[in-house]
Simulated scan of single mutants.
Amino acid sequence: MRGSTTRGVAIVGLAGLVLSGCVAQYRDHGYVPREDQLSQIVPGIDTRATVEDVVGVPSTSSVRTDGGYYYVSSRMRSFAWREPEVVDREIVAISFDEGGIVRGIERYGLEDGRVVPLSRRVTENSGGDIGFIRRLFGNIGGLTLDNFGS
């Protein structure tokens, strides 16, 4: 009787170990400022220095001197043997004018592989550094088998 109980416990333990490998695991990367932090930044008044004081140093910035700051956060899901995939991405883009004054604050999210504005606060209408954001999201969901046909 004792041997069958031990064997049953071992089988249940082994089954639990096997099933635990089938649970999705999530990893978060990067940093995006909270909305209450962003509300402290006033377009047309604040500068690069005050942005860094309020929300911190950006994940990346534009190579142009009048370019913007970008805060990027991604959530990755790993499941069993499958390749990890991006399930959520959020970008806060803060643009500056030539004098280093905040021109606008925009928040973007990942939806079906396209850039989707979630919120936007700007002082003027301009194209800005949207090219960087499009390049950042551009490879997600953009390839199909037709691209590789001969």
Rank of each mutant, 00 (worst) to 15 (best):
D129N: 14
V9Q: 14
T123L: 10
E90A: 08
I140T: 15
L19S: 12
V42H: 10
F96C: 12
T5Q: 11
G100Y: 03
M76S: 09
F79W: 05
G104H: 02
R27I: 12
Q37L: 09
R27N: 13
T5R: 12
G8C: 07
V102W: 04
V18Y: 03
R77Q: 13
V57F: 08
L17C: 05
G113H: 08
I11Y: 01
V63S: 15
T47N: 00
D66W: 05
Q25A: 15
R75F: 00
I133G: 00
G56T: 05
R135W: 12
R75L: 08
N139Y: 04
E90D: 14
D97M: 04
D46A: 06
M1W: 12
D36H: 15
P43E: 01
T65V: 15
Y31W: 02
E124Q: 12
F96R: 07
N147H: 15
R103C: 00
E111N: 04
V18S: 07
G44S: 02
V42L: 06
V23P: 06
E90T: 13
F148R: 09
V55R: 09
I11E: 12
S78F: 03
I94W: 01
Q25S: 14
L136D: 12
R64S: 13
V55K: 08
S39Y: 09
I11K: 02
D97I: 00
G149E: 15
V63H: 11
G100W: 04
I94H: 07
V102L: 03
V54R: 05
G16A: 13
R75P: 05
D97P: 02
V102S: 03
T6N: 08
A10E: 01
Y31V: 02
E90M: 06
V122R: 03
R114V: 13
S78I: 14
Y26L: 08
I101C: 10
L118C: 04
E90K: 09
M1Y: 10
G113F: 08
G142F: 12
S59P: 00
Y71K: 08
L145W: 02
E106T: 06
R48C: 00
G131H: 11
Y31E: 07
G149H: 13
E35H: 12
P33W: 01
D129A: 00
L38I: 02
S20T: 04
I41C: 04
R48D: 06
F96T: 10
G44C: 04
S74Y: 06
G127R: 14
R75D: 09
S39K: 13
T144W: 11
G149D: 14
V102E: 03
N139L: 14
V18F: 02
G3Q: 09
V92F: 11
D28W: 10
